[in-house]
Design a protein around this nucleic acid. Structure first.
Length: 537
DNA sequence: TCGCAGTTGGTGTT
DNA sequence: AACACCAACTGCGA
């Protein structure tokens, strides 16, 4: 192993062979290659205190998706004469140890803009440069380099989609062909005293066998990603006419979108390859939709949120976040729990939350519905609480995009029309009047007639009996009455906005406490009365 | 200061 | 399906 140059390829995201500049660089002019993935126990270890199966950071669906992606990567590496070396422990400690133990001249890994990786990379880069090891860390997770865009805009990220698109222009790499395959890889070097293993199974990580039907139907891995991409791209007319807001959030047998987001999240699919494929389709059709609603437009949304998130301190919180409206969200853990556990009493909302738990994925507009309901629409619970639930359970949860969308939906940033509230009753009904989506995910309501399935508490007792679903016993009564709750929310939003206008970005803790107290005092009795009247009447 | 645009609301009418 | 209307926000550029 001292006979030449060794390289360490550190996989984090970018779990793919195609269009992987870090892997390509690592394999070039190296006698040995160490392809490494570090399992961070914090991310992967079962947490028995967690609210659903999984670790403290990730639900079991995403852990399984990641493991499937690693198995697929390992298989691909093996076909190229290599393999994936799986190590366990704190990632920076493990990588530093490998660099000490192995004869490595180059350390290669994809650049990452998330705060978690930024902090991690500082440590690892620090050690590497002190040890005289070359570090190669290219930007290949996104179409653009967020740092470059921010620089181009005078040091601040563009805060609207249109200004981002204008500023970004064409990706710089567009005229050079992407490297889609590797012919072979250098052999794996001697691993010495570092303990390496094969990719573990979920059971080996300490999880119990999941029940049938609890599995996400989406399988991880580059092979699956490319297969799925091809299936979408084949439908040229569908791609050309794609308009995001027109999709049906209740479609579950055949989702209305590509469901490529989890593959983009882990880098099983290169966003740059996806983008080039979309361009090819566009060249070959007469007419096609455009950003922001087109499929390419969806990739640009991803870029937009990556850029804003990278350039905004405390992007993932309300406090200390310059672009976030300061709003006196309430701290009602009971309402939060009802939402999280799919027992709000609104079947449309509860079905979506069930799909989240079972599949780790739901349609974008379904996410809008439940996010709006939790925050500015009905429950007025802090968006950070909802963000945490999504972050843990979604198989595609992505730090920048998830936080960006919660800021958006809660009218805390980017979007401010807080009177536009998704109805937990009529929004779903307009796509799925029969309630098939609800019947799928909430079998307790499967025999409820369609006239009542979106508002089962209004069904006469005889109907409830016949459907074998008594509201209040077999399925909960609504936690709030939407008409009055949404009115109160609008009022609170108006007051909070007024306060933000007056104090422009300097709303103090005390201001918020006072406002919250004030709002609670004059609204509580009214809400209670209305709710009782409706629910008992 | 003003007018306008903003990925995806709800309701009611034609 | 397409449109007006509701009630009305902010940020941006002229």
């Amino acid at each position: 192993m001292s006979s030449g140059s060794g390289s360490l390829m550190w996989f984090r995201k970018g779990l793919r062979i195609h269009d992987n500049p870090a892997l390509e660089h690592a394999s070039k002019a190296s006698n040995f290659l160490y392809p490494v993935f570090v399992i961070d126990p914090h991310y992967m270890k079962p947490d028995p205190t967690a609210l659903s199966p999984g670790s403290s950071k990730a639900g079991l669906n995403r852990i399984r998706f990641l493991l499937q992606s690693l198995v697929d990567l390992d298989l691909s590496l093996k076909k190229l004469g290599s393999r994936l070396l799986v190590l366990k422990g704190d990632p920076s400690e493990v990588i530093v140890r490998c660099l000490k133990e192995w004869d490595v001249k180059k350390l290669c890994f994809e650049y990452d803009t998330e705060p978690y990786y930024q902090a991690l990379d500082v440590k690892v880069k620090g050690f590497a440069s002190a040890a005289g090891i070359e570090v190669f860390s290219p930007v290949s997770h996104t179409l653009f380099n967020p740092a470059e865009i921010i620089q181009k805009n005078g040091g601040r990220p563009p805060l609207s989609y249109q200004s981002f698109v204008k500023l970004a222009g064409e990706p710089s790499w567009i005229s050079t062909p992407l490297s889609m395959t590797l012919s072979s890889l250098p052999p794996v070097g001697n691993v010495a005293n570092c303990e390496v293993s094969e990719v573990p199974t979920v059971e080996e990580l300490g999880y119990e066998e999941a029940q049938q039907g609890e599995f996400s139907p989406f399988r991880g891995g580059e092979s699956e990603a490319l297969k799925r991409l091809r299936q979408s791209i084949e439908k040229k007319e569908w791609v050309a006419n794609f308009e995001k807001p027109k999709g049906d959030p209740s479609a579950f047998l055949k989702p209305a979108t590509t469901v490529l987001s989890p593959y983009l999240k882990f880098g099983c699919l290169s966003s740059r390859y996806f983008y080039t494929c979309l361009q090819d389709v566009q060249k070959n059709v007469k007419r096609h939709t455009l950003p922001p609603v087109s499929l390419a437009g969806q990739l640009l949304w991803r870029e937009f949120f990556y850029t804003v998130a990278f350039g905004t301190p405390n992007f993932d919180q309300m406090r200390g976040n310059k672009i976030c409206k300061q709003i006196p969200w309430n701290d009602d853990d009971k309402l939060l729990a009802a939402w999280r556990e799919a027992r709000t009493g609104y079947p449309w909302i509860d079905a979506i939350m069930t799909q989240l738990r079972k599949w780790g994925w739901m349609h974008h507009l379904a996410r809008h519905s439940v996010a709006c309901f939790l925050t500015r629409g009905d429950l007025f619970v802090h968006w950070e609480k909802g963000r945490d639930v999504f972050e843990r359970l979604l198989i595609d949860s992505d730090w920048a995009i998830n936080n960006g969308n919660w800021l958006w939906l809660s009218c805390s940033s980017f979007f401010y029309q807080y009177n536009r509230i998704y109805s937990p009753i009529s929004f779903g009904k307009k796509y799925d009047p029969n309630g098939d989506y609800i019947r799928q995910f909430l079998p307790v309501l499967k025999d409820m007639p369609k006239e009542y399935i979106y508002e089962p508490w209004t069904a006469p007792l005889s109907i409830q009996n016949k459907a074998k679903c008594i509201i209040g016993r077999d399925y909960p009564k609504p936690v709030v009455y939407h008409d009055s709750a949404s009115k109160e929310c609008k009022k609170k939003m108006a007051e909070a906005y007024a306060l933000n206008r007056k104090l422009t970005s300097s709303v103090s803790e005390e201001d918020l406490i006072n406002l919250r107290r004030k709002l609670e005092e004059d609204q509580k009795p009214e809400v209670k009365n209305k709710r009782q009247r409706k629910l008992t009447g």
